[in-house]
Amino acid sequence: MRAEVGPMTRNIHITSEVAEAQTNGGHIKFLYGFKSVQVENVELTNLGNPLITGRYPLHYHMCENLAEKMIYTGDSYLRKNSIHHSQFRCITIHGTHNSQIQNNICYNTVGHGLFIEDGGEKHTLFDGNLALGQIPWTGPITHPVTGTLPSDRKPVTFWITNPLTKMKNNVAAGGETGLFVDNKLLANQTVRNVYNELNPRMTQTDPNSERVPMVFDRTTGNLAHHVK
Rank of each mutant, 00 (worst) to 15 (best):
M1S: 06
A3L: 06
P7G: 08
H13W: 11
T15S: 14
T15W: 06
E17G: 13
A21Q: 14
Q22T: 10
K35T: 12
V37A: 15
V37H: 01
V42Q: 11
V42M: 14
V42P: 05
L44N: 04
T45N: 14
G48L: 12
N49P: 06
T53P: 01
R55Y: 08
R55T: 11
H61R: 14
M62Q: 14
M62T: 11
M62H: 14
C63F: 04
E64G: 02
E64Y: 11
N65T: 04
L66S: 02
A67N: 15
I71M: 12
Y72V: 02
T73H: 08
K80S: 14
N81H: 07
N81E: 06
S82M: 10
F88R: 13
R89S: 09
R89N: 12
T92K: 14
H94A: 06
H97A: 05
N103C: 03
N103T: 06
N104L: 03
D118A: 09
D118W: 03
D118K: 05
E121Y: 00
L125K: 09
N129W: 02
N129D: 13
L130Q: 06
I135H: 00
G139H: 10
I141N: 07
T146H: 06
T148L: 09
T148Q: 11
T148V: 15
K154T: 09
P155Y: 02
P155E: 04
V156Y: 01
T157W: 01
T161P: 02
N162R: 04
L164V: 05
T165F: 01
N169Y: 10
N170E: 09
E176Y: 12
T177V: 13
L179Y: 13
L179A: 03
L179H: 03
F180V: 05
F180Y: 11
N183Q: 08
A187F: 06
Y195D: 04
N196S: 15
N196Y: 13
E197V: 13
N199G: 06
M202H: 10
Q204F: 03
Q204P: 00
Q204G: 01
E210S: 13
T219H: 11
H226M: 11
